[in-house]
């Protein structure tokens, strides 16, 4: 679910081209944009406080053959939320799960992991290496 929440509708749709067709569905609720109040912790690790809201889009679908799918994703992309809800429902079908994981979820997860790793490497390149008396001698 987190992987689909971080992907764009375009990225999900592109991966779905390589996946088995998704079963027909009906919208149960949404897709609709709303807000979630984001909380932080006082002092970083104390009690909760309300930091501010973020936009979130949610969608719930029902497969014609039965089965519910729910999605809540950051942002206001209605199509992303509906695709994520539909995939959530379809991933619960044993017949589809393996193929959808391989065609959609895993490649998206790999893309996201690569982006995270690139950012981490750029951050690492700005890490300060101090020259202290101790390590200058060695």
């Amino acid at each position: 679910m987190g992987v689909l929440a971080r992907a764009t509708a375009g990225q999900i749709a592109a991966r779905l081209e390589h996946a088995p067709a998704l079963p027909p569905h009906r919208r149960l609720r949404g897709p609709e944009a709303g807000l979630v109040m984001v909380r932080g912790r006082q002092g970083g690790d104390g009690g909760p406080f309300n930091l501010g809201e973020m936009t979130v889009t949610r969608c719930s679908v029902r497969l014609e053959e039965g089965g519910l799918g729910h999605a809540y994703v950051a942002g206001r992309d209605l199509r992303q939320a509906e695709l994520a809800a539909l995939l959530d429902a379809a991933l619960q079908l044993p017949a589809l799960r393996g193929a959808l994981m391989a065609a959609v979820v895993e490649p998206l997860a790999a893309m996201q992991a690569a982006a995270v790793a690139t950012l981490a490497r750029k951050a690492a390149a700005t890490k300060v290496e101090f020259f202290t008396m101790a390590n200058m001698r060695s």
């Binding site: 009906r26 919208r27 149960l28 609720r29 949404g30 029902r62 039965g66 519910l68």
Partner: peptide, 10 residues
């Protein structure tokens, strides 16, 4: 099983 709400909520 939960059924649908309004067709167009707004």
């Amino acid at each position: 099983m939960i059924t649908a709400g309004f067709n167009d909520p707004v």
